[in-house]
Design a binder for these strands. Structure first.
Length: 683
DNA sequence: GCAACTGAACTACCA
DNA sequence: ACTGGTAGTTCAGTTGCG
């Protein structure tokens, strides 16, 4: 195992032996006898902690190796599923740190063995004074390996000259400045592979880490989850330095450096890896660590199966949160209330966990409507993993004053908490159990309903509600009492998030009488707030986002429909007709899933391919509509690799009215009305 | 033969 | 490689009509 340490000045490399053991249940396979592994009989309990002790074989390979490689071979040669394996598919670095009781970005001493100095749970840890470089490479022409380099940006310095000079200078800057962290935008997908490629082409050695690493040019991968295709680029990891590609890092882009460090320490995942992991992976590691520390072994793959259920039960149980359908229109002086971390609080309060589910200890609680019994005595694995996260988040939130490091840490923990709930219902998750997920949502529905009941009892009108939020109209002075009553009744803290001067719910496009719960806009505590509109969708062309923004702006502080709102539409219509809008402003950016069907995305994909650009499923494509309804890709769309032919003015005009209607529908003004009104107003 | 309808596929957002 | 709930768009296939 290689570990990089940082003292006050420099980075240091430490290499330590690590011989991870693993376990198997069943007969000892023949190949094991010949491999020289040491085998001994042990008794262990299996995570998540249900069931009795089991007799297992503990296998010590006697060297650093990933047990996965051995176990897959056994499965392959001696038949699948004949034996159960444990502690096989754990991240080696994670296991190492758990066993040695150390964690990333935490003070430690090394003298051939580890001595813990810092406390990873400290709220304000002292971090080493790390040197960071923001690196960018600008290419002449399109972003392709064959395009020559134009210049390099190294923090604030521009490095230019011949390509040879630039690569040499980059190398010497790295040596002199000796950064610990390298931050890029698109380093995984393009910048680093490009730099390596150009340096090899010119035969100039380039080392970006503190020591050279392998960098085979490999393609990223596309995979599918719940019908969504996700593209993951090949990670470009450095040795002795931390490369963060902000484009490829959910955690870094959501919660910044502080958030990333916080999660890395809590979940015991090396920072450079955590930068590329999803919050789900962090949750997985946290739960695994709890189980390991309790002495459990972790099953290889998931082998928990749902009990067979009736259809009637599924209709009752397999449901999510509650949604009230709001009335279309504008509402004034509306109070917005939110439960603070509702699902995680419920998990802790009711001790919901795979190892407490279906308990028959006598002291258990029955889930209303579902009939599952949950243990009250022994605290479950998931509540134990979540509780400290909830507590930390609460503290960070109270210490934060706006957009600071505390806010970013709180934000990171929020993602862990949200994901932790989702993970309990995730089919492929290690400790998922559908009954756990069902119970959490059942208590969640009960919690929101209770809150709405109490509010109505106190004379409030419920305008809208969804999962853990309530929109109310009524006496503002009674709110603090309402909050107290609800918290007393449900055990979950309800917060007053703010008050809308006005808030509009847009109409369903199929049925204009119905409001859409997830599309609204208004002014919350003097600040504009928008949810779910075209303006919030990343696939909407910038031009139309701006149209909506201006329309909402024209409604003003009071939220009154007026001629200015329609002037915005009129101006846009004229600009579109006169082709006065740039291609960038009209560009749709959509995910290309690789699925069949001749959608615009598919057409764009074909144009990219014709231009020699390979788009993999899950990546984004950009296009402008050239001819709606046309079958052939080159007649249908214009991509950044095509000539600037005229766009489809008719299609964009139709789109304009759709976009505008979302803003005017709360006022009872529909597409055909807008078309009529726009004819009359002067621009 | 074509318009109108329908359902599946697809993409995206909200909590 | 987190969930369920939901909207909106496109497209292929079916139905209805003359």
């Amino acid at each position: 195992m290689t570990i990089w340490l940082r003292n006050n000045k420099h980075g240091h490399k430490v290499v330590d032996d690590f011989e991870p053991v693993f376990y198997l249940e069943g007969d000892v396979p023949e190949t094991l006898e010949r491999s020289g592994f040491k085998v001994r009989k042990v008794k262990k309990k299996v995570a998540p902690g249900t069931g009795p002790y089991r007799s297992l074989f503990e296998i010590s390979p006697g060297r650093t190796m990933d047990p996965r490689s051995y176990v897959s071979a056994v499965d392959f040669f001696e038949g699948y599923g004949k034996r159960e394996f444990y502690d096989v598919d754990l991240m080696l670095e994670h296991r190492y740190m758990v066993e040695k009781d150390i964690s990333p970005m935490t003070l430690v001493e090394w003298d051939g063995g580890w001595k813990k100095v810092g406390d990873r749970y400290e709220m304000d840890p002292t971090l080493p004074d790390l040197r960071t470089v923001e690196l960018d490479v600008v290419v002449g022409g399109r972003r392709s390996l064959n395009s020559p380099m134009d210049h390099i940006v190294f923090n604030d310095e521009v490095i230019d000259g011949t390509e040879e000079d630039m690569i040499k200078k980059l190398g010497s800057r790295l040596k002199r400045y000796d950064p610990d962290v390298v931050i890029t935008q698109g380093g995984d997908t393009f910048l680093l592979p490009y730099l390596y490629y150009r340096s090899e082409l010119l035969d100039i050695p380039l080392v970006l880490g503190r020591e050279p690493s392998m960098h085979l040019p490999r393609e990223g991968r596309s995979h599918e989850s719940y019908g969504r295709v996700i593209y993951r680029p090949e990670p470009q990891m450095l040795r002795g330095r931390i490369h963060i590609d902000s484009n490829a890092s959910f955690m870094y882009s959501q919660s910044g450096w502080e958030g990333l460090v916080e999660v890395s320490r809590l979940a015991n995942i090396p920072l450079q890896k955590m930068a590329r992991y999803s919050p789900g992976r962090a949750v997985d590691c946290m739960e695994i660590e709890h189980a390991l520390r309790d002495g459990y072994v972790i099953p290889w793959k998931k082998n928990m199966v749902e009990d067979i259920k009736t259809l009637d039960h599924l209709l009752k149980a397999d449901r999510g949160g509650i949604t009230y359908v709001p009335e279309v229109g504008i509402h004034r002086d509306v109070v917005k209330l939110d439960f603070a971390s509702m699902y995680p609080s419920i998990i802790v309060r009711y001790n919901i966990s795979p190892d407490t589910m279906g308990c028959d200890c006598g002291n258990d609680r029955v889930v209303p409507g579902l009939g599952y019994s949950i243990c009250r005595e022994k605290k479950g694995l998931i509540p134990r993993a979540i509780e400290p996260v909830l507590e930390r988040r609460r503290i960070y939130k109270s210490r934060s004053c706006g957009n600071d490091g505390y806010a970013r840490k709180a934000q990171a923990l929020k993602w862990l908490l949200v994901t932790c709930f989702g993970y309990t219902g995730y089919k492929k998750a290690r400790f998922s159990k559908i009954e756990v997920h069902e119970s959490i949502t059942a208590y969640g529905r009960e919690t929101l309903l209770k809150a709405a009941d109490i509010a109505m009892d106190m004379g409030y009108e419920v305008i809208h509600g969804i999962v853990d939020s309530l929109w109310l109209k009524g006496d503002i002075h009674g709110i603090s009492e309402l909050l107290a009553r609800v918290e007393y009744a449900t055990g979950v803290e309800l917060e007053h998030e703010g008050t809308y001067g006005w808030v509009c719910f847009s109409a369903d496009k199929q049925d204009r009488k119905i409001g859409v719960p997830t599309r609204y806009f208004g002014v919350l505590d003097g600040e504009p707030e928008v949810k779910g509109l075209y303006l919030k969708r990343h696939d909407t062309p910038p031009y139309f986002k701006n149209v909506q923004r201006e329309m909402i702006g024209a409604l003003g502080e009071k939220g009154e429909i007026n001629e200015d709102v329609f002037k915005v539409v009129k101006r846009a219509m004229i600009e579109l007709r006169e082709e006065n809008v740039s291609y960038d402003d009209l560009t749709f950016t959509k995910k290309f899933s690789g699925k069949r069907g001749l959608s615009y995305g598919r057409a764009a994909y074909e144009r990219y391919r014709d231009a020699g650009i390979e788009v993999k499923p899950g990546q984004m494509v950009k296009y402008v509509i050239k001819g709606a309804g046309k079958k052939r890709a080159e007649e249908r769309v214009i991509t950044p690799y095509d000539d600037d032919d005229p766009y489809d003015r008719k299609a964009y005009e139709t789109y304009l009215f759709r976009v505008a209607e979302e803003i005017t529908s709360p006022f009872g003004i529909w597409r055909e009305d807008i078309e009529r009104i726009v004819k009359k107003v002067s621009p």
